[in-house]
Design a protein around this nucleic acid. Structure first.
Lengths: 69, 69
DNA sequence: AAAATATTACCAATATAATGGTACAGAGTT
DNA sequence: AACTCTGTACCATTATATTGGTAATATTTT
């Protein structure tokens, strides 16, 4: 999963929940800039930042071993 | 998934593949310190760093909507 | 159309992740 | 015992993520 996909996923999930970037920024206590950059595929967020966002978007990170094809 | 679990997972996966921290550092081009801190649950790695490590450990990140319980 | 709202662009300042070196501790080897 | 390999501790430096402000640009609403 590339950072661009991750951004799109977050953006989509945020809209599904009817939240604005400002709403999410207020909920998470992070800046609008950071969230906006992540959604745009710019930026390189830290794990904690992602965890923080995911908590309020009801998302979770999973790590899996790639299947050999 | 918390950062501590992620660290343990990476460490376990690295050992399964028979790699030392130095090996993984050489493969990824990152410093031993960074990798060691991630595995120890210290530190807060960026997405790109995780992506880089995962590539050589044959791991992948997945994001899922949490099931409501 | 205008007006209100939402998002991005831009930028300087701050916080902190990442680096690369050395030193230290532990385990295994000879 | 010393020696080798591995991983962690420590530290200063560099790189960059994050912040918070304003301005500019969509986008929606009336």
């Amino acid at each position: 999963m590339k950072i661009e996909e991750l951004g799109k996923l977050i953006k989509h999930r945020r809209k599904v929940l009817g939240l604005t970037i400002r709403d999410l920024a207020d909920l998470t206590g992070m800046s609008r800039t950071t969230i906006s950059q992540i959604e745009s595929g710019v930026g390189n967020p830290t794990f904690q930042v992602l965890q923080n966002i995911f908590e309020y978007l009801n998302l979770e990170i999973k790590v899996k071993v790639k299947k050999h094809k």
